[in-house]
Amino acid sequence: MTDPSNDPSRGPVLEVRDLVKNFTIKSSKGLRVVRRTVQAVSGVSLSIGTGETVGLVGESGSGKTTVGRCVLRLIEPTSGSVQFKGTELVGMPQRELRRLRSQMQIVFQDPYASLDPKMTVGAAIAEPLDIQKAPGNHHDRVVDLLELVGLAPDHAERFPHEFSGGQRQRVGIARALALNPALIVLDEPVSALDVSIQAGVVNLLEDLQDQLGLSYLFIAHDLSVVRHISDKVAVMYLGKLMEIGGADDLYTNAAHPYTQALLSAIPEPNPILERQRQRILLTGDVPSPIDPPSGCRFRTRCPIARDLCAEEEPELKDRGQGHPVACHFPGPLSVDQPTRLVDANDR
């Protein structure tokens, strides 16, 4: 597959550099209010080319959703740069940003919560057209969009409660497509759907990408769906990228211990292989982002962590693996490696 981001005439659709997002949380200690900072995203860089899909995976609290929201400036990044087709979005006045937003859209996880129950599906899809005062007949456009996502024109008159989860997600996609965007952030778009329905929505997303040349930032925790749909995959842990690479490369030659553990934790739908498989079982849970571990953030759960890992943070760079990895000691783990029994809560 040719990498469209190598085409110098076009450049990437999205270029994120050193993105940081801190949230301040207040907690009370007796009568005192203590303010603490949660680093949700700590220096993430990635780029997406035209027609390309970048998968962003990680467990809960990894900051993957925050990256998606910062890209669209639905939440304000603390620092860093987000360039859309060469235009810097961070610091751009709201008025200008609104114009650009028509080219960047988002589809949310929960198709039940993301549609207004009192609005017909047609009105929901036409809403972005009305807001942006798009030219042309909005009703005709709604009918076209419904057909594009595999729904019938008469569905426009119905309300969300008359639709199944899969159909609602198609409505969400139709609405995202209304203004002919170049980039869509897909935040867990199929996680709430049953597998038999999920497959249809994944196919639709792939078809739309082929027809319309869309770029996707596909955020998900389901690694098998991500592998299927993505050209490139970035793995996040506690606000940082651990490893990024071509989808097949990453899944077959994962170099970061976290990526390997993540891949080995997915149960495969094949009982014979699944029971023979040696797995890397991580101990404990993801530590709190309020007080992340020093050095490498994964070290408290890492089976091969050494002293250096606590002292020095590993940079995300190619260490001869063919793709960037943020680990001092990258490479395939052997399964009989002694696993240190460290619980995240003992830190």
Binding site: V195, S196, Q198, A199, G200, N203, S224, V225, H228
Partner: peptide, 12 residues
């Protein structure tokens, strides 16, 4: 309908 290791089209 489950995605496999290839990019083959899914069958819902």
């Amino acid at each position: 309908s489950l995605p496999g290791p290839t990019r083959e089209r899914l069958h819902p």
